[in-house]
């Protein structure tokens, strides 16, 4: 296999204990590799550390142990200045399209923000590029002057995607990007992400709890629980033939769109629950 784009090795993240509580390890000994043009699913429930993993790659949480390598270069603890340069290549989209855009700033201001690190934000070229990126995700140029509240949830998520695309990144961390969207809008956004990947050769680190989205989008998947990696592999392999009892529980718990299959799964779920207890 070619050299990995992103490599995470034995990553451990510990959150400082709040008040009298002891420090909590949010991630323990996580390793993963992501190749160019690939989508890696990171699956887990609340408290699994899946969002922390994304934040660690983005340099938003302190790393206690382990290494993160970007194109073979160690970026575990780079200086803020270098991190800003890196932000051109590694971008992110977040779950909540309502709070990830500042309500007091126009869409144009928010979208252009991703160019601030390279001081291109104010150039006229940047503006025309922002307009073309917005058009690319399906909005028109007039969106630049308007405020986030004038857009629907699906449109805001498109704005967030445009914002992440603007510096022409290589990797986009997608943290529950479709969880807050309605089913029909969710499908539109997933198609958009697929198209963009095909066009630009983007890689995604796709963080989600939704196994059906993972099955559709991700070539490989890792499953996290309580900050530990419990299973990883080809998505179909992980979801259809889970080896870890937790993954199995997770797969059985995700409701299938089929009353008959759902009845079987319910029985299997009960059996699995009895086995694990």
């Amino acid at each position: 296999m070619s050299e990995a784009l992103l490599e995470v090795e034995n990553l451990t993240v510990v959150y400082r204990g709040r008040r009298r509580r002891a420090p909590q390890p949010a991630l323990q000994n996580i390793s993963l590799r992501l190749h160019a043009g690939e989508t890696l699913g990171i699956v887990g429930e609340s408290g699994s550390g899946k969002s922390t993993l994304g934040k660690a790659v983005l340099g938003l949480v302190p790393i206690v142990e382990g290494a993160i390598r970007w194109r073979g270069r160690d970026i575990t603890s780079v200086a803020p200045r270098e991190r800003r340069v890196l932000s051109r290549e590694i971008q992110a989209i977040f779950q909540d399209p309502y709070s990830s855009l500042n309500p007091h700033r126009t869409v144009g201001q928010s979208v252009l923000e991703t160019l601030a690190a390279s001081n291109e934000e104010r150039s006229s070229n940047a503006r025309s590029r922002a307009v073309s990126v917005l058009q690319h995700v399906g909005l028109d140029a007039s969106a630049m002057e308007r405020y986030p509240r004038q857009f629907s949830g699906g449109q805001r998520q498109r704005i967030a995607i445009a914002r992440a695309l603007l510096p022409d990144p290589t990797l986009i961390i997608c943290d529950e990007v479709v969880s807050a969207l309605d089913l029909s809008v969710q499908a539109q956004v997933i198609n958009l992400l697929t198209d963009l990947q095909a066009e630009h050769g983007l890689s995604y680190l796709f963080i989600t709890h939704d196994l059906s989205v993972v099955r559709h989008l991700c070539q490989r998947t890792i499953v996290l629980r309580h900050g530990r990696l419990v299973e990883s592999g080809e998505t179909a392999q992980v979801l259809d033939h889970p080896t870890d009892p937790y993954t199995e529980r997770l797969v059985l718990a995700a409701p299938a769109l089929d009353p008959d299959r759902q009845r079987e799964r319910r029985l299997a779920r009960r059996a699995a629950a009895m086995a694990t207890n």
Partner: peptide, 22 residues
């Protein structure tokens, strides 16, 4: 604590720019 401030950090804004804008 707002998500848009996290987004601004990810976008590569300096602490000062974040203070002024957000």
């Amino acid at each position: 604590a707002e998500l848009f401030v996290t987004a601004a950090r990810v976008a590569g804004l300096t602490a000062r720019q974040i203070q002024q804008r957000h």
